[in-house]
Design a protein around this nucleic acid. Structure first.
Lengths: 189, 189
DNA sequence: ACTGTTTGCCAACACTTGTTGACAACGGTA
DNA sequence: TACCGTTGTCAACAAGTGTTGGCAAACAGT
């Protein structure tokens, strides 16, 4: 029921979405204007409204995101951290949707809510499949999120030079043990 | 030379700064309007302009921040992580300036630059006093920043429930080993 | 060829934004 | 008292925002 007849305007819709992700990722929610997005998509601002209803609606469509987490239960238990860091680096290096969501989440309540859902639903669910104490899965997922989002924030948003300059493999070597401990370890005394 | 004659308007200036920090911390740079700040300070918007020149100028004054890092060289080497987490939690739980800076850094280039400077100057300088390989201090400071800022981002900005609900001492127990390793450890094989 | 729908552009609306300048009340000084 | 710099209020401007409705061209079905 999702797939209707292909419309002639599908190309325009896609162009708008692509431009929207680019502007939202680069400028954040409030600085990314509908006029700028429309200009980048080479159409009239009013088309954006007709196809997506409002700026909020456009953002909701542009920020649709799936972490595409692998099945953690199928990963060797001592490689969980390494797998996760590598996955996240690849995932958001190739898709600016998460950067858009990250920037917008700082100022837009709706985007923050979406971010909460993203990690509560997808990440916590993946962690729950690991077989650790069920009572601690939410907490473990939250800790993982804090390091993962902090990495994204410093590398792609604030662009702290030392974090930007580190090679992906170096990041994996340093950060993987952190996630590994958050997932399977215990807190310090 | 910094201290001039005390003006009668000093109280107003301070009220503006307090209101500005509150609005910037709660709404971010673009959503925090001069009119809203003035209303909260119970003065006219034009006073903000006269005393701080522009919105950018006001933000620059309101986001003046000092991490007040302790002398890390005087801390027992195996307690560095614990000391740092505890210090940061206390530091930004009592002062919303850092939250304002954090929110604004996502969308405002000037705020991002200020954030870079804050960690490059103050944190990297503190780490440099530890006596580890000088070539790695910037990298170590960057890694620490990624975890610290990620913690602040998830706890105070996005408000991920599991991270919000954790008690400060639990956070210390979990996160301290991470910082400890970033500061004094080596990367995984 | 006729008709109704879709796609697109244009111009305008109502509103908010940062910012400015004129002008009144106040406070200390001569 | 008269004077002058400071502190404060009011009204307005110019620019930019999301959003709306009307109208022309292209299309699809008959």
């Amino acid at each position: 029921m999702t797939d209707a007849a292909p419309r002639r305007s599908d190309a325009t819709r896609a162009a708008i979405l692509r431009a929207a992700r680019e502007r939202f990722a680069a400028d954040g929610y409030e600085r990314a204007t509908i006029r700028a997005i429309a200009a980048e998509a080479r159409i009239d601002p009013s088309m954006v409204m007709r196809y997506y209803g409002s700026k909020e609606g456009l953002f909701a469509a542009a920020a649709e995101f799936d972490l595409r987490l692998p099945d953690l239960a199928a990963v060797p238990p001592d490689r969980l951290g390494e797998t996760l860091v590598r996955h996240f680096l690849r995932r958001w290096e190739g898709d600016e949707t998460l950067a858009a969501l990250l920037r917008a989440a700082s100022t837009n309540p709706g985007a923050a809510e979406r971010m909460r859902r993203l990690f509560a639903d997808q990440l916590a669910a993946a962690v729950a499949g690991l077989g650790t104490d069920p009572a601690s899965t939410a907490r473990r997922a939250g800790l993982v999120a804090s390091q993962i989002l902090g990495l994204a924030f410093t590398r792609y948003i604030v662009r702290l030079p030392p974090v930007v300059e580190m090679a992906p493999e170096d990041l994996v070597a340093w950060v993987a043990p952190t996630l590994q401990r958050y997932l399977t370890g215990r807190p310090a005394s």
